[in-house]
Amino acid sequence: MTFSAPPRTPLARALYRAPILVYRAGLGGLLGGRFVLLTHIGRTSGRARHVVLEVAGHTGDGAYLVASGYGARSQWFRNVVRRPRVRFQVGRRRFEGTATPLDPAESGRRLAEYARRRPRSARSLMRALGHGDPGHDGYLRLGADRERGIPIVELRPDR
């Protein structure tokens, strides 16, 4: 089964959103540093929205990297492009900061790094999104393609 499009049915949406309940129950620490609860503002509604994403990497100065599996189609991605001020939680740590899509070349490099560090997770993600196993050069291209690929977004905490 592939998830080349965001979930459309109520059941599929509920399953995708289940990790948010883990954070809301105060159990975000159980997910460790592998996932982030991102709170962003809807570009049309102006209301707070939530999504749980896998941490794809870190920068050397404390920022977290996350991937937009559905590229520019992702609602959260479209929202943070319009309104980059966000709140996010990793484990029990909470931050306020800024979400910034990486430039295409850096995004591709970071996606390829993620695939090197977590090859099984990366292959599973690629298959689920309908990309097959793209190989190193394919990860570079997918990360650099904001529209149809998997761009990387930096979540930088305020100092």
Rank of each mutant, 00 (worst) to 15 (best):
A115F: 01
P10W: 03
H58I: 03
L11H: 03
R117P: 04
L30C: 12
A112E: 14
D103W: 10
G108H: 03
T9F: 05
R117I: 03
R83N: 13
L129M: 13
T59F: 04
P19F: 09
G69C: 02
P104V: 13
V52M: 09
R156P: 00
G57T: 06
N79T: 09
R120K: 12
R13N: 05
G29A: 10
S124G: 13
G135W: 01
E54V: 06
D61T: 15
G42E: 12
Y70I: 06
E96N: 12
H50Y: 14
Y70Q: 11
D145S: 05
G135Q: 03
G69R: 03
P157H: 07
L155W: 02
V36M: 10
A122F: 07
R17E: 14
V52A: 06
E113C: 06
A144L: 11
G42N: 10
S45I: 11
I41L: 15
H58S: 11
E113H: 12
P101Y: 11
Y64Q: 03
P134G: 00
F88L: 09
E113S: 13
E154F: 01
L38Q: 11
I41G: 09
A5K: 15
V52F: 02
N79S: 12
A48D: 13
A56W: 00
S124D: 06
F77V: 10
A48T: 08
V52S: 03
H50Q: 15
R83Q: 13
L155M: 04
Y139S: 08
R83D: 10
L129G: 01
R141E: 11
S4V: 07
I150L: 01
S45G: 09
L15I: 14
G91I: 05
R127T: 08
V81Y: 01
P157S: 06
P119D: 03
H40S: 15
Q89V: 14
V22N: 05
S45Q: 12
A14V: 05
V80H: 11
T2H: 14
M126I: 01
R49D: 06
G91F: 00
G108C: 02
R93K: 14
I150W: 00
R127M: 11
I152C: 04
Y114M: 10
R123Y: 09
R116F: 04
G46F: 11
V86R: 10
R159V: 14
D103I: 12
G108K: 07
L102Y: 00
R109I: 04
P19W: 07
D61Q: 14
R94I: 12
L140D: 02
A144R: 05
G149A: 07
Y114S: 06
V86I: 14
R93P: 05
P119F: 00
R146E: 14
A122C: 07
R93C: 08
I150E: 02
V55D: 02
V36C: 03
V51G: 10
R83H: 15
R82C: 12
R43Q: 13
I150V: 15
Q75E: 15
